[in-house]
Amino acid sequence: MSGRRSRSRQSSGTSRITEDQINDLIIKLQQLLPELRESRRSDKVSAARVLQETCNYIRNLHREVDDLSERLSELLANTDTAQAALIRSLLTQ
């Protein structure tokens, strides 16, 4: 782990990423966030805000996966043969 980190540090010295490239990536990220997608380029959202919202969004998605896993577990435990057949039919499609 530490080896990889030190390598990335070195490369950051040699191939420096321009501000423009970072800004492009920030805009790209921003467009993926429901919270910030609406805002136009005119009212510029700060990079820090975009990254902050990105963290929040990922955390929410992780929570949703948690919840959905729980529900799936319940559903699969309770409904058996008929639904299992449904899954099987989906698989063989």
């Binding site: 990889r4 990335s8 993926l32 998605l61 959905l68």
Partner: peptide
Amino acid sequence: GMETSKLMEETAHYIKCLSMQVKVMQCLV
């Protein structure tokens, strides 16, 4: 272990996949 620009790039892809995952799981539920 990622450089910041790489991190953002990977994050963009990760978010897309993750939201798709949530949609599919929701459909299944």
